[in-house]
Design a protein around this nucleic acid. Structure first.
Lengths: 228, 228, 228, 228
DNA sequence: CATGAATGAGAATTCATTCAT
DNA sequence: TATGAATGAATTCTCATTCAT
């Protein structure tokens, strides 16, 4: 496998040069086809035709089919996850934890349920038989990094006495899966997003409430007091 | 893979007729190959060779590749899921909810984390581009049915005042994903089970505790008092 | 190629013995399928299934697929052509040539246009690439023999001064093709008989009239007298 | 100036481009094999090997086996039939009907008995089980169109009082089948042309004479007188 | 730089035929 | 006798990849 040419050249003076446009058209075609039909279900022919170029052109830009998929996955991830992680950091200093966490959860759900992202998960999982390293790279780059970011934030909240946690990473996953476990899971099996935006909001809200009951005892002091 | 000791096979009087043996060998070969390389990544040739039969023999028993995969998926699900759902029913009458729920969670984790079941999820998801109905059938037959069974049980527990729940199905998914969301998710991306048994137990335990904090307030009166 | 067992056993004491019935069912199934889908378009599997027997049973009665087709063709021909040739002989002594020849022509058309016979022609022609001897045998047994029988009759009629012919065989083919050339030809290309019975009668009638104008001058004496 | 006299194929500027040659070689190989072994009796493998190309090359130029056969049939028909129909038109103004019709008949026979055309008939008929539309298209394009052209000419001759006809189309088929019915029929069953050129001429001649006796009474006044 | 043309290897599926019981 | 089970060899068609221009 030859190394393929560098993917991004952010400081290019001429961002829409002929070859950059070609590259983009191929990437878009391949993305659409991979997401729709999977890795093995998509042929290089289809990609070239849809992109309106010849196959050798594709092979000049990427060493082989693997490289093309990897490029797509990596650059899609780059574009998708970062905005959320930025907002997440702000939660650590929250004055109204419940409200801010609810807001964050909605944003989390909104990010994750971008159709292309859900399909990307399916694609990567489906291709994991052929490209196991890609799947692992995906997992480390996407869910796991988010969990770690959540954990960092929760540690800070715990330091401020707002949360009571033992294992920050585990707590982070509890938050994540309470908020959208069901969506993540079900959407792997259904081509079309199986939940309406309202349903998503309900699930996010209920997830956060459950999370707070489990991890923010003082927010539920009344419960304890009542018993005491 | 060695056969483990088989004492009986109760459902058939002539369990080892020539053709039953052939069928089983093909099924085993196909299962192993599908789980390892995915649907499109496995060829009927490979299956026949591994089973030690000719291709027409495979086609005599299953109409086509789809039918073979469907058969494998369905029968694997049948074998795997039912025992757990039986045990689940018993929880409704529990005298010691925390202990029994912990026990159930361990069994849940044990069932779900059978390597072949985890791989089956990957397989079905990977094949969903080609066989979308199979993926949906899988989802309805496996996770969703378990969620419903959990919900039924939780409703009974709520009736007895042991849990406080609004939306039973949502609560069921909270339980399920608290207990093994992370495992389910991560194992889709890693060929080999990414958690040791001990890690699984820890996660199951922590998941149940979080669940109880969120949904069984009276069990936590003591906690509150203790902390107070 | 082994010789296959004798096809007909006309003096069998038990004409509907078990095995005779089996043979008949296979023959019928094969005939229907061959006529419908052609020789290469029909599989031994389909034949066995349709006949309700196993494939080895078919192979016990016929050495191979070729033998089965040959048997079918030969026995169909035997059954179909003879009645007509019997009637043909009677024409030689006709008192009213035009009327009797018209009648005969209608019978000729009726015989030839039996759907199964037309389809048989197609079948044999289609199989001639694989079984050239069969096609030749067919031609000698069916059209050619009829032409010869017609020629014999025409010779007798010429002897009586009713026809004026040079080359009897050629004259016979002129009769045959005037009467149903178009039908024979077109029906090779159309699955369903392309002519109604009325059209057939019209063609047969016009063909006979043309034939008589060409070969029975005294029946058209008026024409000649007029010119003289 | 590239405008010197061009000796080569007028319709294409680059008649022997690489791909045109490839296309021609495949067409030739396929034609030979289809004519020899029939549609189902010829495999795409054989075609590719005989053409000296790989199978994908064949599939690049024709969508599938059907398309290849259709192409061959259509282009063969185009090449074969048109010249004759041109000559036919000239007959309408004939000064010496008998002589010109004899000449035309010889040309008709010569056209139809091109070995490749006779084999093409067999091929199309044999393939009609699998490709019924092709067979019908063939019939409409070849025999039927010729019949119509003959009929048109005969109508003109009748207008000039040279023929006496009722149903022009029927008369046309009478001409066609008198002249070469036997050839057309017999050659469907025999791989090699079953008649020598001399035999063909004799049949054509006799066919025309019979036709004229049946449809051109005044041409036969002399005959009648002679006989009288 | 881009392409039309090409290909070896392999995909799913079916065939006529035979074995073993 | 009749069969369920089996198979070697082909079938049509596709794939990722490269050559030649």
């Amino acid at each position: 496998m030859k190394e393929h040419i560098q993917t991004t050249s952010p400081q290019s003076l001429e961002p829409d040069s002929r070859s950059a446009r070609t590259r983009r058209r191929i990437t878009e075609a391949a993305t659409a086809l991979f997401l729709e039909h999977g890795y093995l279900g998509t042929s290089m022919d289809q990609i070239a035709v849809r992109a309106g170029v010849s196959k050798p052109t594709v092979y000049r830009l990427w060493a082989d089919k693997d490289a093309l998929l990897e490029d797509i996955v990596r650059s899609t991830l780059d574009r998708a996850g970062d905005p959320f992680r930025a907002k997440l950091a702000a939660l650590a200093g929250s004055e109204d934890l419940r409200a801010d966490m609810q807001k964050l959860a909605r944003e989390y759900v909104a990010m994750i349920t971008q159709p292309s992202l859900l399909q990307l998960r399916r694609l990567v999982i489906g291709a994991s038989h052929q490209l196991p390293e890609l799947a692992q790279a995906y997992y480390q780059r996407a869910p796991e990094q988010t969990f770690r970011a959540l954990a960092d934030t929760f540690v800070q909240l715990a330091d401020r006495g707002l949360l009571q946690i033992d294992d920050p990473l585990l707590t982070a996953t509890h938050f994540a899966f309470l908020v959208l476990g069901r969506v993540l899971d079900k959407s792997l099996f259904y081509r079309d997003a199986p939940f309406s935006r309202r349903e998503l909001d309900v699930q996010a809200h209920a997830g956060v409430e459950a999370f707070l009951r489990a991890y923010a005892p003082q927010l539920h002091a009344t419960d304890c007091v009542a018993k005491a």
